[in-house]
Amino acid sequence: MLSHGMKQTGNVSLHHLQSVILAVANPWVAMGILLLLAFFASYMNSLSWADLTYVLPATSLGYVLLALVAKFALHEQVSPLRWLGIALISGGVGFVAGGPALTSHSHHDAAREPEPARAAVSAGAER
């Protein structure tokens, strides 16, 4: 997800500007960097209260959102194989979300769980 964002911002900067220093001044690149930082901050926040094997599948929802944005906002073709990929990721996230978020510590409040994951995903999706 991070590399995808970097690739997009990288392409944008190549189209509009030649130098790397000027590229940072490009609002698209600057916004990309800001959103990457937002993703990283919410990712670290999630890791502070949930297992890595719980957080990672949840962040993979970013791939699903990316495909949906490509389909409905950019009107790109989404092949059947990619729809299968979306279904597999959603199924996997559903599996892990049904279990406990943290090993060995006392159980966290279930109502709190979706919030940082969703923040991380939306930060990834807007790129």
């Binding site: 990672l56 599948p57 993979s60 990929g85 597999l88 990721i89 996230v93 599996f95």
Partner: peptide, 19 residues
């Protein structure tokens, strides 16, 4: 990492591979 998480990891890996 219980069976639930293994299944999730494999499903997500396959899905990401396709996407």
């Amino acid at each position: 990492v219980d069976r639930r998480r293994w299944i999730a990891a494999v499903l997500v890996a396959a899905g990401v591979g396709l996407l």
